[in-house]
């Protein structure tokens, strides 16, 4: 991952976020992505207003019904409304994604900052730990942690966060090393600024563009990993409607009830797509060289 924002980004301080948003809206990709993401978000957040079905309620007289006006996405094998489950499942996906990204940014960002700023032994030790986490394929690592902790949303967040941290640490660290090498940091040191102050005033603002891009990509990966873990039975536990759990349920009815596989998968793909597009657009906006 090479996401070096140009140093001139740093100078555009005032109203940075609004500026980014405005720039995003000017780009066709960014605009599309924002529209899709907003739609997904609204569908998930307003689920109780959009559908009157309880995602957990079993209508035992309407089992495995194909999509119809009453049940837009059909019903599952114990009569639960698939449309409602997809909406509420998206909520869980987004929740897991949001938590994972937040924790990864905070923990990964902090470790990366420390590692990059101090260098030396601190850096050496942190890098070895990060490498240890990174020797395993991320899903294998998450799977292992989740299997050990047992299925629950909290444990999924822990498992996915741990697997994502190494990437953040690495990127933030290399950014920090670059920042540290710049003249104004040396200047701050000369005038007696503390390490913490330097990191906060110069390190963090410089990292924001990179973090935004990585965060949106990470969000997508987190959603996919949650689905994979749930599919494998170590993720979000039943009866919660997770998109991955729904796909696992659907495998028993391949060739019989295709709606059980099509709709949850579609929603999953659309959510990840929107996040990836946001990431792409952000990268274009924040890093002029990549246009």
């Amino acid at each position: 991952m090479t996401l070096a924002p140009s140093p001139d980004v740093v100078e555009r301080r005032p109203n940075r976020f609004l500026g980014i948003l405005r720039a995003l809206l000017r780009e066709p990709i960014g605009c599309t992505a924002l529209v899709i993401l907003t739609t997904v978000l609204l569908l998930a957040l307003l689920a109780p207003l959009i559908t009157q079905y309880d995602p957990l309620f079993q209508d035992r007289r309407a089992v495995l019904k194909a999509p119809s006006l009453a049940h837009w996405f059909g019903t599952d094998d114990i009569g639960r409304d698939v449309f409602s489950r997809v909406l509420y499942g998206t909520r869980i996906s987004l929740l897991v994604g949001l938590l994972v990204v937040t924790f990864t940014m905070i923990i990964g960002g902090m470790i990366g900052l420390i590692s990059g700023y101090f260098g030396g032994w601190t850096d050496m030790i942190i890098q070895r730990i990060v490498e240890a986490l990174d020797t395993l394929p991320s899903l294998v690592l998450s799977l292992f942690i989740a299997a050990m902790l047992g299925p629950s949303v909290r444990n999924v967040v822990i498992a996915v966060t741990l697997a994502q941290i190494p990437r953040f640490v690495r990127v933030v660290r290399s950014e920090m090393i670059k920042v540290r090498a710049q003249d104004f940091i040396a200047a701050s040191r000369v005038i007696g600024a503390s390490s913490l102050r330097i990191m906060l005033t110069h390190g963090v603002p410089n990292l924001i563009p990179t973090m935004l891009v990585m965060g949106s990509l990470s969000f997508g990966i987190a959603i996919m990993t949650e689905a994979a873990l749930s599919f494998l039975g170590v993720g979000t536990p039943p009866p919660n409607p997770s998109l991955g759990t729904m796909l696992a349920q659907g495998t028993r009815f391949i060739g019989i009830a295709s709606w059980l596989i099509v709709f949850p998968g579609l929603m999953l793909t659309i959510s990840v797509l929107a996040l990836n597009l946001i990431g792409d657009a952000l990268r274009d906006v924040l890093d002029p060289r990549r246009r």
């Binding site: 994979a228 060739g255 596989i261 998968g265």
Partner: peptide
């Protein structure tokens, strides 16, 4: 390429299997 980057392998696998069965 943008779309395929977003399709989970999990879903792609299940769709392949469904498609072949169909």
């Amino acid at each position: 390429s943008t779309v395929f980057l977003a399709v989970p392998q999990l879903w792609l696998g299940l769709l392949t299997l469904s498609g072949l069965a169909a």
